[in-house]
Design a protein around this nucleic acid. Structure first.
Lengths: 340, 340
DNA sequence: GACCGCCTTCAAAGCGCTTTCAAAGTGCGG
DNA sequence: CCGCACTTTGAAAGCGCTTTGAAGGCGGTC
């Protein structure tokens, strides 16, 4: 069933039927009613490609996912983010296009979006401090929104971020209040903007009390369970082990936890852990009582919101162009006073 | 830059340019060369919508992801699967379209694919025993490929599956050989085909030795860390705790492990665990020595393969229409002889 | 009764590509 | 030197939609 057939059935022109369906004001109420009923009855839905061709729009948002074997962004966090974004897309009539490419192909992928016209805009994941992709997207004129921020990129752009600095400052203060002085930081890759901000928050809190950070207790890497385990193991087996860990991801924290338990230590008594918790659907931080004390912010909600901001921008609707989310600090069983 | 401009620049008709670029045989080698060079130089790439409209093809594959709050398929396993599928799509010039909808909207979403024509086919995730979506897709005539199988659906269709039954039979045998008799099964939802097959494999092995399964040591649910923890806790605290766990997912297994360690028990000595391992990029089963003894099969590779099978089918290329993957059984530190 | 303005509808062009059908050019045998 | 087959190129139609510009119908006004 296409427009032509439908209009023939109705004895109307394609023009009128199209306008009736798209809510233009110049069709009479009676005609509109009739057209809509017929469309429903014959299960008519406009062909997306033809509509796109005629309007110059794709009604789709693209996500480029770099996926070399070294650096994978196809992680559970990303999964939850797109679940949230996908809800918004569905609600507002957009498709979500995912493009998985090798690191080296990312630029080409964005250019292809523009040139092929298969998406109206894109969401940028995992921004670096001075992320070249932002310059690229500005340059080629593809609308975009950033999940996070890029501190060193000048100028304005649409973003949504968590107040990482504040969150980690609060978390560190909390540990300090409990008497911890040897606090380890297991951070994400500090080429990433969020990781730098978290470290800043961590250091802000230490500095405020005149406590120097301990280089041996600092790691920055991909946030996997395995690396969390390894880093924590190294530190715990070292000459001056930490009494507390501040961890950038729930997944790493599971690894840290494994290292702690493996050594027969008790969480919240011998060693404390605070982690950032993205509220992943498949790895909730406990059901009643949280496993970990955590700075919490739902990445799924972030997906919902940012997708909406991007679509607003594409459709010329005015709305927030920047948005900062504050974290909750939730108390779990993984923290306690520093052992003495 | 579009076809018209490019052909004007070249002093050729759109016809010839189009043919040259699409590899039709009736253009001379010299012309083709010249056209391709010009296309490259002017960074020409055909508009996807126009191409789609003209060919009736979308050059895209859709994935419908149900996402109510109760049953979430947006899980890490899915993430790795689409990472693999995405690689194939990119290589073969396809886009990946993701549609996140409420459970109740799944049928509508598939119908929309067909009617809007925004994808050429779809991949079906998490098939049930007698999955209604298969009938639906056959009915509306949208090409599809199934990740897994639906045992109770008659007739032929394209699928790729892991030999779940065999894998779990071998795993169970392995535990039995170690002397375990009270073996718990922490399975996925047994409305899902794979979960039923795994239970069959488990029961096959027990039956072969005349050992009855123990209902109190059987669970079937969403495969989250939290539920793994809860189920294992219940069993370990029960009157007759298991000496070994057979777990359907690495994520659940982490929960089981947590329950075991929380009780001061030692893995591989007091309690054994075997899990299925989908080789998730963000949660590898240890680096040198595996954390868990596991039945292993890469879901990412499955994504790569199945995407290829679907595209073959869409393009009319002959290839495998069904494919069965065997699991490795890898030995880790989580298993040992049954305590006596 | 002629004229004006408004409401409603329509014919047709155009979006950027593919593909059919026709025509022009080329080489070769008779 | 003609005719034929073959190679190479082009004009134009068509994919299904939106949108411009024009026109028909109608009531109200002078």
């Amino acid at each position: 069933m296409n427009l032509k057939e439908l209009s023939r059935i109705l004895g109307l022109s394609q023009t009128t039927v199209s306008r009736a369906l798209n809510g233009y004001p110049e069709v009479s109420a009676a005609t509109r009613e009739r057209v809509q009923a017929a469309a429903r009855q014959h299960n008519y839905s406009p062909n997306a490609r033809a509509k796109g061709l005629a309007t110059g729009r794709a009604y789709a948002i693209g996500h480029v996912i770099p996926s070399s074997d070294s650096h994978e962004i196809v992680n559970p966090i990303f999964g939850d983010f797109i679940a949230g974004a996908g809800e918004t897309y569905a609600r507002r009539g957009y498709d979500m296009v995912l493009t998985v490419v090798d690191d080296a192909e990312v630029e080409r992928a964005f250019r292809a979006y523009k040139v092929k016209g298969n998406v109206d805009g894109t969401i940028l994941h995992g921004p670096l401090l001075n992320d070249p992709r932002i310059y690229l997207l500005r340059d080629i004129g593809l609308p975009f929104a950033v999940h996070g921020r890029a501190s060193e990129v000048p100028g304005d752009y649409t973003w949504l971020d968590v107040n990482n600095r504040r969150a980690f400052q609060r978390a560190t203060d909390f540990l300090l209040d409990l008497g911890h002085r040897r606090i380890a930081l297991i951070n994400g890759l500090e080429a990433m903007d969020f990781a730098v901000r978290r470290r800043q928050g961590f250091e802000d809190a230490l500095t405020a009390r005149g406590i120097p950070p301990i280089p041996a207790l600092h790691r920055s890497a991909e946030m996997t369970e395995g690396l969390g385990f390894r880093f924590a193991s190294e530190m715990l087996d070292g000459p001056a082990p930490p009494t507390a860990f501040l961890v950038s991801s729930f997944i790493s924290a599971l690894g840290v936890r494994r290292a702690v338990l493996d050594r027969g230590l008790k969480l919240g008594r011998d060693v404390s852990i605070i982690t950032h918790d993205d509220v992943l659907s498949y790895m909730t931080n406990g059901e009643d009582e949280p496993i970990f004390t955590a700075t919490r912010s739902s990445v799924r909600e972030a997906g919902r919101l940012l997708a909406g901001m991007l679509i607003d921008r594409i459709e010329g609707v005015t709305g927030d162009t920047q948005k900062m989310l504050e974290c909750d600090l939730v108390l779990g069983a993984s923290t306690g006073p520093a052992p003495r």
